[in-house]
Design a protein around this nucleic acid. Sequence first.
DNA 1: GTCGCAAAGTTTCATTTTGAAACTTATCGA
DNA 2: TCGATAAGTTTCAAAATGAAACTTTGCGAC
Lengths: 162, 162
Amino acid sequence: MPGKTDLSRLNCSLARALGAVGDWWTLLIVRDAMFGVKRFSDFQHSLGIARNILSSRLARLIEADILARQGTEARPLYVLTAKGRALLPALVALMQWGDAWQSDGKPPVVVTDTAGRAIKPLGVRSPSGASLDSAGVRFAPGPGADKRTRAFFKARDVADSD
Amino acid sequence: MPGKTDLSRLNCSLARALGAVGDWWTLLIVRDAMFGVKRFSDFQHSLGIARNILSSRLARLIEADILARQGTEARPLYVLTAKGRALLPALVALMQWGDAWQSDGKPPVVVTDTAGRAIKPLGVRSPSGASLDSAGVRFAPGPGADKRTRAFFKARDVADSD
DNA sequence: GTCGCAAAGTTTCATTTTGAAACTTATCGA
DNA sequence: TCGATAAGTTTCAAAATGAAACTTTGCGAC
C-alpha cells in the first residue's frame, strides 16, 4: 500500500515539480551539481549520503531530464541539463529562506554574480516590479485548471470572509 | 539505522531549509495554507493525503514555527506564521519551474498581484538588477562557512578546469 | 435534551523506503 | 602487474508511508 503517492492527480505545477524534486536528497544533489560536483564519489562524499540512495536518486534525476550522464560509461560525469539549471531560482530562494529563518545569521554559502557581488534576495514581483509579500499575492485558476481546481478556488473566495 | 539523516552536519542553509520543508507533503501543505486552507479536513480533502501523515506533518510544521494553531482546541485553524509566509518565493519559484518544465503549457494555477496581474517569473538578480542564469552565478564560502565548506569550494576552484 | 453527522485526529497493519555497511567489478596509475 | 579507487549493487533491519478502521468530541437540527 505505501509507496510514493501519485501526485499527478493534483492539478498543480507545484505538485508536478515536487514529483521530480520533492525529496531532500534530490535537491541537495542538484545543489551540489550547481556547485560543480560531477562524480558519483564526490556527491557521495560531500553529502554523506548512502550509496544506494545516491544511485537511485541520480537515476531518477536522469530519468526526469534534470541531470545527464557524460564522460565514459565507467567514469560518468553527472551534469545539469537546461531543465536542471532552471531550478536555480527555487534553490536559491530556499537557501535564502534557510539563511533568514533557520540559521545563526551567518550564511555558510553566498551566492554572487561573476564579479563577486552578492545577489539580491529573490522575491515575488508584480508586473511593475513592485515586491510582493504573501498578502499582496492572489492565486487563481489558470488555463490548465480542471473542474476540481476551479471549485477549490471558488470555495476559497467564499471562505475568504472567514 | 534508517530514518531521516541528520542534515545539520551539512554546513548549508539549503540543508537547514530542507530539514524543515524537504518533503513533498510539507511543501504541499504550505501551498494549501498559502491558498487559505486552514482546517485539517480541508487539507486532507484537497491533498488526498493519509490522515496520519497529515497529522504528523502539521505537528512538524508547528514545531518548526512555520504554521501556528489558532481557533479552538477542538476545531483548530492552521495558519502560516511570518516564517511560513516567507516561503512564498521558494514555493512560487518551484511552481514556475513546474509550469515551464513539467507541464503541458497550461498552468493550472496563476499567481497574480491584488489587481489580478500575473506576477513576473522569479529570477536570480545581480545587485544592479540584471537577471542571472546559472552560468552567471557563483557560489562561495560565506561568513558562516566551516573548514569543510571552505575546503569544498577551494577544491571546486581547482576542479573548474575540468 | 437527544441524535446524527462531521471534524479531528489516533491506531493498526502491511508495504515501501531508507541508511549503514559489506560486497563486486572495472579502471587507472605507479 | 598490482593496488587503490571509482562506481556502483546487495543485504539487512529500522523507519516511514499510506489505506482504512476506529475513537472522541463538537455542532446543529429537531
